[in-house]
Design a binder for these strands. Structure first.
Lengths: 355, 355
DNA sequence: GTGAAAGCGCTAACAG
DNA sequence: CTGTTAGCGCTTTCAC
């Protein structure tokens, strides 16, 4: 005689959860229990209409009783869809990217995608590695963030069978769909405003000029404003630095030494370091130095004085990028390839009244 | 006659990348090309020793030529290992959790795991949903962070066939492996120190007392210090609030009104809000009010005055938790279930000399 | 409306 | 050292 114990009894007999781990029920178990085929169970699980209501109910009941959860891996293999997307980003620890990530995540979950996250510290080699790894995991799409779309990265993306959307990341060749603010205009506006207020020497602090986003966008906007009033850029007011608090502290005296009376900074961590250096050296802000930052993260509210900032809709950039990705994954067309979300200038305490 | 075009030619003929997507090579293609069996290819891919060097080379060559990348999904289904772990956390946007996450990520990558990330905003219902979703994705392990291990969450974890490690999250029942600092002692030490310096009224600002970490750890340490000098806790010095800058701003006047001359705060965002309220209302810090925070994120360095803080090795908490998880996933034993990493008190500008 | 059967791409005995 | 053969759990035609 064959005795089949149910799980509960079995547990009592064996007496140790660790010995008998509950074996997850499969679609096969459900089918058996109800007396239908796998196909039918699959249909109800996937909301296929072609199932009689009465059978559907029975199946649902069995699913519930068995605690059946579809195995996403098997499903992925069979359907070639993983319902997972990948994020490639520099560093979760940077508030700017963290907020983009949050936007992406929320929309992803809304569409029932899970999110695979990789930090690459802006290293193109690691970007490529990350993308390849995501590809092998069969993600349905990728959101790429970072300062720069390196050539190697571009090539890797090109060879991909998977849609990619850029968030807060600029593609000079305009081949990839992307979501950003209008960097050129943002930097143009703030520079022009500062010039209008009589500043002769406006410093621009940004990331490496090897990166398009600095060279062709931030610097371009700044230059445009200068040119418009008949002036040229003066290299002594151009500074580059990574997003690092300590290193920026070392840069600060040089910016001061340049004779600048105002500065525009590309990242909040950098701006706060600059601000704190000035504060700690008893500068009058904005009297002696006006300061504008550009990501408007928590830092700009938390700092004292509070930082005037170019405000980006960070969460939305992430959210919109993810929304676009869902369309792409669905083979829908995009209305716009390069979405530009509106930015604003938030006047706080490190500048005089702007206009 | 059958003409087989290579990919490049094919692309030229068809003229559109989008029509002819490169079909990823499978293990089968590699095997065919070399003239060996799948098994052999699988062996070299998985570093199995049982392959003659010469065949191994041939296989490697073919893999390279074909640009073959193993399909992680298929592999996962066959091997029942996804080389993916899941993180369940409140919010990436909180620097404390972001830094833990970074530690987890780095160690995970070191061991070639990918990381699935979910934000649950400390909502137990979403915690459970997230865990279930991760389970269906067949993650090999989960790292759970958050204020509280809700009962429902505990039950869900209990029913899991997957190892779970807590990071920066406390398990009152001590059933789950976890990595933390010694919260009781940390809060005991700082409270004792403040009392020793003559403070009569020390406020404690923390999260909800429904959560064990606040009730049984933070408050416990605080109480212990009080009791030691023969005093009882006075509820009017106890404050609870979420990790929200704006809401804390509203709480601030109440803390001031309590008559406290020192406060101990459980989270940096909250501490900065309190600090800024005091600063904006021209309080002398630390003259009129001493302030100690407890996560030592960037905020405490960036704020002015800089915040004295209980320092946690955040990155390491994440890293160690992940390291423990790798062991668990490997069926190795853990030396310690509840790891307590060392904390420190970092004296900065919101307190007088501590001792 | 339902079932049978063929894979998805890979791993893992087992046999040789 | 290498090949054969079952699956892993599910989706998806194609019949009925």
């Amino acid at each position: 005689m064959l005795i089949i114990l149910d799980e509960e009894t079995l547990l009592k007999v064996v007496g140790d959860r660790n010995v008998v781990k509950k074996q997850n029920a499969t679609i096969y178990d459900v089918a058996n229990r109800v007396g239908v085929s796998l196909a039918t169970v699959s249909r109800v699980v996937n909301g296929n209409k072609n199932v009689r209501d009465s059978t559907k109910e029975k199946v649902l009941k069995a699913i519930d009783e068995l605690g059946y959860q579809p195995n996403a891996v098997a499903r992925g293999l069979a359907s070639k869809k993983s319902t997972t997307i990948g994020i490639v980003m520099p560093d979760v620890t940077n508030l700017y990217y963290a907020e983009l990530t949050r936007g992406i995540n929320d929309v992803a979950n809304m569409y029932h995608y899970d999110v695979l996250l990789t930090n690459t510290d802006d290293d193109p080699v690691r970007d490529v590695l990350a993308i390849n790894s995501l590809e092998s995991k069969q993600v349905d799409g990728i959101i790429f963030m970072g300062n720069e779309l390196d050539q190697g990265v571009m090539k890797t993306i090109d060879a991909l069978n998977i849609p990619v959307v850029l968030a807060g990341c600029v593609d000079a060749q305009k081949k990839l769909p992307s979501v950003n603010i209008d960097y050129i205009n943002a930097f143009y506006e703030i520079t022009a405003s500062l010039l209008r207020h009589g500043h002769e020497n406006v410093a621009l602090v940004m990331g490496s000029l090897d990166e398009a986003i600095n060279r062709d966008y931030r610097l371009a906007g700044y230059t445009k404003a200068l040119n418009e009033v008949g002036r040229q850029i003066d290299e002594k007011f151009l500074f580059t630095t990574g997003r690092d608090y300590q290193k920026t502290l070392e840069l600060a005296p040089k910016v001061v030494a340049s004779g600048a009376t105002a500065m525009i900074v590309y990242d909040d961590v950098v701006a706060v370091a600059l601000l704190n250096y000035l504060h700690d050296h008893h500068f009058d802000i904005p009297g002696q130095m006006e300061l504008v930052t550009s990501n408007d993260t928590n830092y700009s509210i938390i700092s004292r004085p509070q930082l005037t900032s170019i405000a980006q809709p960070k969460y939305d950039i992430g959210a919109v990028a993810m929304r676009m990705l869902t369309k792409l994954m669905n083979n829908e067309d995009l209305k716009e390839q390069a979405v530009k979300l509106p930015h604003a200038i938030v006047q706080r305490q490190t500048t005089h009244e702007l206009s």
